[in-house]
Design a protein around this nucleic acid. Structure first.
Lengths: 102, 102
DNA sequence: ACACTATTTAGCAAAATAGCTAAATTATCA
DNA sequence: TGATAATTTAGCTATTTTGCTAAATAGTGT
């Protein structure tokens, strides 16, 4: 699937959007994220893997747990690109140019 | 459903995102839009009604046909709000403040 | 090795989504 | 009014999504 599609599909779910908002405050482990939502751990885990698949978050293992952090550049990059493609006059501000296929 | 959810669900489909991009060039009738895609008229009609339900497009009847136009303020407003909520440092530019519940 | 904690993976059921064709609707024109 | 054109609505099917519980995996501490 294309990157843009993965990102917008990821953002289509309210739980996932809220996970991103929580991560904006700082990194959190899977368990800490789960504690903030009324749904099961496995369901959160699935949401996290979708967010990760869209590169909206990064994960790293830290001992026993897995810690997630927001990737604001991907969020702003992909969504911002779409926004400036569709309504160039409304949006915009100098964003870092994306490095081509690093 | 909440407005933000309707918007992001609407944007989750690639055909719908592309419809918005086509409309960016100027308004188009349902038939003209259909002609640009490889899927059936009724399917396009459904996509249009989802976009309309999210206020991403407006429609008006013009004689025989129904003409659609982009609502760039809704696109930029909702998506931009999310963007500045999640990654305030990356994005941003003065956007018109949304009039409260007109 | 064993127990314990944190997390993911598997497998299932219910709901939502997107496509199709056929039928209904709305407007135009003779 | 009757025919034609443009579009939507209805009804169907296949696929995807989201939630769950149970089981597997990975790391820590004894």
């Amino acid at each position: 699937m294309k990157s843009v599609s993965r990102v917008f599909k990821a953002l289509a779910d309210p739980t996932r959007r809220q996970i991103l908002q929580e991560l904006k405050e700082g990194e959190l482990s899977a368990g800490e994220i789960t504690a903030k939502f009324p749904i099961s751990g496995p369901s959160i885990s699935r949401h996290l893997s979708i967010l990760k698949g869209a590169d909206l978050v990064a994960e790293r293992r830290e001992g026993n747990r897995i810690v997630y952090q927001l990737e604001p550049e991907q969020v702003a990059g992909v969504v911002g690109d779409f926004l400036s493609a569709v309504c160039p006059t409304q949006v915009l501000r100098s964003r870092k140019r994306k490095r081509s296929k690093r």
